[in-house]
């Protein structure tokens, strides 16, 4: 199924969910409000049947810009793919979790939360996954500053030691 057809199909059920994208973009943009419903539709609709969430990528558009999440979906039955993007404001942006729809998302959402600070509403266990629980800040954000100290240990920043 082509992107345009999928767009039409989703638009027919949830007209508010879609956000217009740039010309020639190979993805669908959506608002976070309807994402849970749309995801359910994508997963269970007879024609769509996106049963695999290949990848969930958090990204940062830059300082001051919104944060985003890209979902790469794939259907093993219908053999078609889709990329969905959802962007939320930098501070306090919330996206509905799809961990119950695609279990893959459970850990990937935790990763996006860990590294970008995107909150996923309805996630069963939203904790840091790769970094220590007491880490401050979200390292993959473009405006992230390395801390000077971690648990009282100075973070080495230059290699003058061996010069």
């Amino acid at each position: 199924m082509e992107l345009a057809a999928i767009q039409t199909r989703v638009g027919a059920v949830h007209p508010d969910a879609l956000v217009p994208t740039d010309e020639g973009a190979a993805y669908l943009s959506m608002t976070p409000e309807h994402w849970a419903d749309v995801a359910q539709l994508l997963r269970s609709d007879e024609e769509l049947r996106f049963n695999v969430l290949m990848c969930l990528t958090g990204y940062d558009r830059g300082p001051g810009e919104p944060l985003g999440v890209a979902y790469n979906l794939h259907s093993m039955d219908k053999l078609h793919k889709l990329e969905v993007r959802i962007e939320v404001p930098r501070d306090g942006g919330k996206i509905p979790s799809v961990a119950q729809i695609w279990r893959t998302a459970e850990w990937h959402e935790r990763e996006a939360y860990d590294l970008f600070g995107i909150t996923f509403v309805g996630h069963p266990d939203l904790r840091r996954i790769l970094l220590p629980e007491d880490w401050e800040g979200y390292p993959l954000r473009k405006d992230y500053k390395e801390p000077d100290y971690y648990r009282g240990i100075p973070v080495p920043k230059d290699k003058r030691g061996w010069e």
Binding site: T57, D60, W107
Partner: peptide, 15 residues
């Protein structure tokens, strides 16, 4: 600008 690696073992372990 951004590289995300979707590692197979990451998903395999989550099960």
């Amino acid at each position: 600008y951004r590289v995300k690696m979707r590692s197979p073992a990451f998903s395999n372990l989550s099960v």
